[in-house]
Amino acid sequence: MNNSAQDLANEYLRLGGRRLLVMDDNILSTKSWEGDPPEAETFWKQEIEGLAPRRRNEVMSFLPSINVT
C-alpha cells in the first residue's frame, strides 16, 4: 500500500477513528478518550502503527489536534 500520509489519516478518520494529535515540544503522539470502532482500530494497527516513526508522525500530523491555539 503506497498511500500518502494524508490518505492514511483520512481513511482512519472515515472509519470512525477517534485518536487526536497531541504535540508537546515537537513530539507527536495520539490521545483517545474513547476506543476506536473495530474497523478503525484494525486499520490503525495494520496500516499505521507499524510504520517507521517519521512516517507515522507524518500520518498523525493529519489527525485533528487537541493543541488548538
Rank of each mutant, 00 (worst) to 15 (best):
M1R: 01
M1L: 04
N2Y: 01
N3I: 02
N3Y: 06
N3A: 07
S4N: 08
S4G: 04
S4H: 06
A5S: 07
A5G: 07
Q6L: 00
L8H: 01
L8D: 02
A9L: 06
N10Q: 14
N10W: 04
E11P: 09
L13E: 12
L13H: 14
R14M: 09
R14P: 09
R14A: 13
L15T: 13
G16I: 08
G16E: 10
G17K: 05
G17Y: 06
R18N: 12
R18C: 10
R18W: 03
R18P: 01
R19W: 04
R19D: 09
R19T: 11
L21S: 03
L21G: 03
V22F: 02
V22R: 07
V22H: 05
M23S: 13
D25P: 10
I27H: 10
L28H: 02
T30D: 00
W33P: 00
E34W: 10
G35Q: 10
D36Y: 11
D36G: 14
D36K: 14
E39R: 15
E39G: 13
A40G: 09
A40E: 10
E41V: 04
T42D: 13
F43I: 05
W44C: 02
K45F: 14
K45M: 14
K45R: 15
K45L: 15
Q46A: 14
E47W: 06
E47T: 06
E47P: 01
E49R: 13
G50Y: 15
G50V: 15
L51G: 05
A52K: 10
A52Q: 10
A52C: 04
R54D: 03
R55E: 06
R55W: 05
R55A: 07
R55G: 01
R56K: 08
N57H: 01
E58L: 05
V59R: 04
M60P: 03
M60F: 05
F62T: 00
F62N: 02
F62Y: 08
L63S: 05
L63A: 12
P64F: 07
P64W: 08
S65E: 10
I66S: 15
T69I: 11
